[in-house]
């Protein structure tokens, strides 16, 4: 009996989070990604990357332009942000997913944003 109740709870939880994610339009998700990229206490991506809309960007990383062309595969882009050490073990880019700097949801928004560049 308690198992059933528990399963029901999990199902409702899952259902509500799916609903919440679907609540945002692509534009809103891009905007959320941008906020996180600009926030010094979150992505702080612009400290290293030039990108459209970046204020006082740094220059330690390559400019983020034409990203859909360079990363047609969304998962590959997400992997690059989540753990850039996979591609370059000596990278100076922080491992945003592996070190829990951004949550998985935030990484998704970040990918939406970067893909829009």
């Amino acid at each position: 009996m308690p198992t059933l109740k528990f399963m029901f709870a999990v199902l409702t939880l899952l259902g509500s989070s799916i609903a919440a994610a679907a609540d945002f339009t692509l534009e809103e998700r891009i905007a959320k990604g941008y906020e996180l990229a600009a926030d010094r206490n979150a992505g702080n991506c612009f400290s290293c990357h030039m990108a459209e809309g970046a204020e006082q960007p740094g220059n330690s990383g390559p400019p983020l332009i034409m990203m859909q062309l360079r990363y047609p595969d969304r998962d590959q882009l997400k992997a690059q942000i989540a753990d850039p050490r996979m591609r370059n073990p000596n990278t100076n880019m922080p491992p945003y997913g592996a070190h829990h700097i951004l949550t998985d949801q935030e990484l998704e928004w970040m990918v939406d944003f970067v893909h829009s560049l």
Binding site: Q56, H100, I101
Partner: peptide, 22 residues
């Protein structure tokens, strides 16, 4: 640290670069 930098990341490898306006 969470950001995974060594002293050398910033003051050797990235020396001369700009972090934002720094």
């Amino acid at each position: 640290g969470q950001l995974n930098f060594a002293c050398s990341s910033c003051h050797l490898e990235m020396a001369g670069n700009k972090l934002r306006s720094e």
